[in-house]
Structure formats: C-alpha cells, structure tokens
Amino acid sequence: MAREKTIYPLAEGLSTQDTYAVLGNAQKFQKHKHAWKAWRALKDFGCVVYPVAEGLARIDGSKVYSNLAELTDKVSVVVPCLLPENLKSLVQDAVLAGCGKIWFQEQTWSRELQQECDSAGIEVIRGCVLRHRIYPSKISLRYLSPCYWHGLRDVKVPVKKFGRY
C-alpha cells in the first residue's frame, strides 16, 4: 500500500508540494555554497527540485540544467542564489519557463527585480530556504547557524528518517 506524501508549509504560501528550480553557478554548487545547500535542503524536504547552473552537467548524481528554459512547465518556483547583478534576465526567464513565483534568498533581492516581478505578475517571496530546516538538537552547532536564529519561529520541515517523514 502506497503511503501518502505529507505536505509541509514553507514561506508565505509555499509548500513542499511546489516544484523548485535552484539557480546558481557551477562554483556555488560544486563548493557546497548556498545554492547547493538550498537545493539539498529542498530535496531533503521531499520537494521536486532541479539545480540550474551553466557549465555543470551533474551534481551529487543529479542532472544540472543549464538554464530555466530547459525546465519550461516543470517548476512553479525559482530560487535564485546569485547576487542581483548576475540576475539580469531572471524575471524574463522565469516568465518564459512558466514560473509564477520567485523565492529570493538573502542578498539576492533588489528593488529593480521587485519592480520587474510586479510588472510581470510574478509573486515575490523573500527569506532563506534554510530557515525551514531542523538542525540537530544534540549538536549545539545549530545555535551558531544564522539561518537557525533568523528562522527560530518559522515553520520547520521534519528530518527525513528511513526514507519517510
């Protein structure tokens, strides 16, 4: 008997049921920086999530898409993990890919991008993906994570155990 997948709420109306594209560059994925961490966290939450970066074929066994156009009609939310100056065509690319929401991570949002999203009818969500992650309580390192403190009262997604939540 198949077990139903539990859906967990995330930021501002997003949930683990949405499909995501994490947009970064090869360095941010390969060196396990924020793009990799956001992609990994969403994947661990049980979300359908695609990594997007030019010049990278695979990461941790998953195919990496070179641009959002390759994901047309597959994702509902884009999660950019690049600085605003590297996101010149983000809104246009998101519209062409059929995405209705952009979840801006810390330091990726700008007023110009907000205006473009408003003009294009794209919903803007701001905040870090990692705020919704449960950090191990046995390790006091969670208290050192800025995402833990910033998201102290945010909804959390339980840790996956034995392939189930």
Rank of each mutant, 00 (worst) to 15 (best):
V124Q: 08
G151H: 00
K156M: 04
L144P: 01
H34S: 15
D118K: 08
V48Y: 05
Q27D: 14
P9L: 09
G163Q: 02
E116C: 02
V95S: 06
P80V: 08
Q114P: 01
A21G: 11
Y143W: 11
C128M: 00
S62C: 10
S140K: 11
L130K: 07
L10Y: 09
R153E: 06
K33P: 00
G100C: 03
K5N: 12
Q115L: 14
F29K: 10
C128W: 02
Y148K: 00
W149Y: 06
A94L: 04
S89R: 09
P136Q: 13
A41V: 05
V95K: 15
I7H: 11
L71Q: 13
Y20W: 10
S145I: 02
Q17N: 14
V22M: 02
P51Q: 09
E4H: 13
S140T: 10
D73Y: 13
M1W: 10
A21P: 05
P80F: 08
K43V: 01
D18P: 10
I7F: 13
V91A: 03
I134V: 15
H32K: 15
F29Q: 01
V77H: 02
R142H: 15
S137W: 08
T6Q: 15
K160H: 07
K63Q: 15
H34C: 05
P146Y: 03
R142W: 08
R142L: 13
R3S: 12
L68P: 10
G55V: 13
N67P: 04
F104V: 00
W36V: 07
A21M: 14
P51K: 01
V91D: 07
G163Y: 05
Y165E: 15
H150L: 10
L42G: 03
G46K: 03
V52H: 05
W36R: 12
E116G: 05
I102Q: 10
